[in-house]
Amino acid sequence: MESTISLIWILLTLSFLYLVKRKLSTGARKTAALPLPLPPGPTPLPIIGNILDVGAQPHRSLARLTRVYGLVMSVRLGMTTTVVVSSPAAAREDLQKKDQALSARWVPDTARALSHHETTIWLPSADPLRKHLRAVIVTDIFSHRSLDAMRAMRQRQARELIANLRRRTGNNPYSLIRE
């Protein structure tokens, strides 16, 4: 009896939190930079979104959904909302006219933690600081001279990794593969 009551309380709490989050997210959408409303799409389930609609063969599932919702539709995969464009003409138009909005990067929470996303390569692609940082990375960090200088350390790390794998697998590399 107590477990049933506990389960009901948990379900009610989760439902309440979902509704509050949904209400807050619709208010945040109004201030977001993305053009809204989103295109039509299947109704997502809480937490998992439309992952069950997409299924094991995404290309076929998305083709089926395209017949129902049109050539441009929105699908939620987990907590990420994705706009699917199934028409070459619509894709060409979106990529030519809305390239700046579409090229925006998703910034992980780890980069946002101490505002690192404001001064790193997570900046928008048109930002001059990002272009400068990319140039520094290409010319200084990943140049042939820098990579050659670190070659001995990379080889040593690779040898340590192989030795660790051999030690853990008893010199049988196939023991890591589970069937």
Rank of each mutant, 00 (worst) to 15 (best):
M1W: 07
M1E: 09
M1G: 14
E2Y: 10
S3A: 12
I5Y: 12
I5F: 15
I8F: 08
W9Q: 08
L11Y: 05
L12H: 00
L12R: 01
T13R: 02
L19S: 08
V20A: 10
K21R: 15
K21C: 05
K23M: 07
A28F: 12
A28S: 14
A28R: 15
R29A: 14
A32N: 11
L36S: 12
G41Y: 01
G41H: 04
G41R: 00
G41V: 07
P42C: 05
T43N: 06
T43E: 08
G49S: 08
H59S: 11
R60Q: 13
R60W: 08
S61P: 11
L62W: 02
L65R: 00
L65H: 03
T66M: 08
T66W: 01
Y69K: 05
G70N: 02
R76Q: 13
V84R: 02
V84G: 09
S87M: 07
S87Q: 07
A89E: 15
A89I: 11
A89C: 03
A90G: 01
Q96T: 13
K98W: 14
A101T: 09
S103C: 12
S103A: 14
S103N: 14
A104Y: 03
R105I: 07
V107E: 03
P108A: 01
T110G: 09
R112D: 05
S115C: 11
H117T: 07
E118H: 11
T119C: 11
T120Y: 04
T120F: 04
I121R: 03
W122Y: 15
L123I: 05
A126V: 03
P128L: 00
K131A: 01
I137E: 03
V138A: 15
D140V: 03
I141V: 15
R145G: 04
S146C: 12
L147Y: 04
A149D: 09
M150N: 11
A152V: 06
Q155L: 14
R156N: 10
Q157C: 09
Q157R: 13
R159D: 13
N164F: 12
R168K: 15
N171H: 11
N171L: 04
N172P: 04
Y174V: 06
S175N: 09
R178Y: 05
